[in-house]
Design a protein around this nucleic acid. Sequence first.
DNA 1: ATCACGACCTGGAGGC
DNA 2: TGCCTCCAGGTCGTGA
Length: 277
Amino acid sequence: MPELPEVETVRRALVPHLTGARIVSVWSSGKPLRLARPLPLRALRAAVTGRRITALRRRAKYILLDTDGPHSVLVHLGMTGQLLVVPHDAPRAPHTHVVFALDRGRDLRFVDPRRFGMVNLVRRDAEDDLPELGILGLDPLGPGLTDISLLDLARRTRQAVKTFLLDQRKVAGIGNIYACEALFEAGVHPSTPANRLTPARVEALRRAIVAVLERGLRNRGTTLRDYRDADGQSGQNQHSLAVYGREGEPCRRCGSPVKRLEHAARGTYFCPRCQRR
DNA sequence: ATCACGACCTGGAGGC
DNA sequence: TGCCTCCAGGTCGTGA
């Protein structure tokens, strides 16, 4: 579900609800989450109960809720995670795993059927000591990703460029959908070894990455099934996808059937005519 | 050091 | 209706 545009859309939707809100209590279902098992509930309660949320940040696909203490709450949505703000007395949806009760009569709830997500605690002065944050590469919408830096990263690996784009240690925030879409937009075959891309094609790829992510953001994310923002709203970007999930359907540019391949056990959709090695 | 692959979970879709 | 298989937006650990 949640790649950079979805995570950023969730963050933006949370800002008006959470900025300045005080955390009154923390509840957990007790079920482990894939990326934070076990959930550090005691430490979480001790660090955030009674604290106010001062700011919300995004790093790659992670959201950080900064408190007025030394800690932040780190959230990753995994594949099916949702962060929802609802009235305190709203019925608890199935697969609700963490609830932050807030003042103002509302809850921030983390709902995640597959439990691939994470809710964790981090000290802001030691954020990058957490391996999952420390390894993150360049944010494609930040100032770090340039034609030069992307070319430099690509030259270091023979991985298929599709796999390369999904590697969060290199460029952080792209997932399966936007990787496919960016490669289509740049006319690059997903199996092309990253180190065989010419500088001109890397430049086209960088522009395509930025374009598809910004379009996804304008459309408030891609909802294939589960994705909802913090107000429960779906995104609209699924209507703008050129290749993802369209196996057998005509390419929107040339009409030939969209093909599906696998890279690192993830589906890859592409147009064999428009995308060349 | 790279890298390919299975594991981690649940649920929805489609075939029979 | 029910059962089975396959697939899914992410990341990590293993072993070659």
